[in-house]
Amino acid sequence: MAFKIASSPHVSTTLHTNKVMQRVALCLIPGILAQVYFFGMGTLVQILIAVLTCLSAEAAIMKLRNKSIKNALSDNSALVTGILIAIAIPPLTPWWMTVIGCGFAMVIVKHLYGGLGNNIFNPAMAAYVLLLVSFPVQMTNWVAPAELAANQVGIVAAFAHIFEFTSAGLDHFRIAVDGHTMATPLDTFKTDLSMGMTSSESLQRNVFDGMTGVGWFWINLAYLAGGLIMLKLNVIRWHISTGILLAIFVCSGFGFLLNPDTHASPMLHLFSGGTMLCAFFIATDPVTAATSTRGRLLFGAIIGVLVFVIRTYGGYPDAVAFAVLLANMCAPFIDYYIRPRSYGHRAGN
């Protein structure tokens, strides 16, 4: 009687890629909720647009590549990419920008490089950078936090603004919101320093609550919480996140100690902009990161240092996307040169 044959091992874990991605998406929820709380419903609308675009772009590409659409969509990787793009861009970004960003991320950054597992650059961050350099005005106009805004951005207003409805009935929603877009805290800080203000003077502005930006602190804290859950669930390993946060802390700490007037505090760096989102959800994308443990620490450290350098000395207020893409370029070399010592080998072999 003939039996089924297979190569050992015959058992495996049940934590498959789709589950990993699903958990990543679920762990984003606290951060998303915080973002919605502070910046309105725009984020949810963006998530809807981005996820739909990403899934359909992936399906189209899989169709063109003659591969199973079901397999590709069920791994949930497009879902995660869509959510990440949606929460990275300003909540009231016009829909066509989101679509361009997601299409670019899926088609060019991911599938033109060979699809899942083969892309060199983080699709979400590549899309963000594309939009940032193409539409700098829209990409730097963030919604004013709820505390500072006269009225909260509701779901109707968000739709009206994002889809640019021009009918008379909806216009007042748009106008109401338009009056309440403003620069992000990091942007404000940077502009103030360039205008000759000291950091303490800048922190007196209403976007700051003394230490960090209004609302941003809580959003970052929520992403940190989500990240810790992922660590606990073994969805990610600690090396990259630790590398990033440590590097940012050390660099900004040195800068702040040397010259507090022209440097942001480590607190501002760690809890502003996309720091926590990057540290736990973006840089930890395994496909584009280094793979060995020491390599990952280095990979994280490179991102951390770049974030500090670009934020402090560069032309852009936040630097997460650039830092991640630059570190992505380094990943293959890190993997090549940083190899663990194998069992039975002396160090260096």
Binding site: K4, A6, H16, T17, V20, N71, D75, S77, G115, L116, G117, N118, R237, P286, V287, A289, T291, S292, T293, R296, D335, R339, P340, R341, S342, Y343, G344
Partner: peptide, 22 residues
């Protein structure tokens, strides 16, 4: 047996390798 899918370079294999390989 299930179908083999793309490697996402998650590195879990390196974590569990008793011979410390990649």
């Amino acid at each position: 047996d299930v179908e083999e899918k793309a490697c996402i370079r998650c590195g879990e294999c390196a974590v569990v390798c008793p011979a410390l390989l990649l």
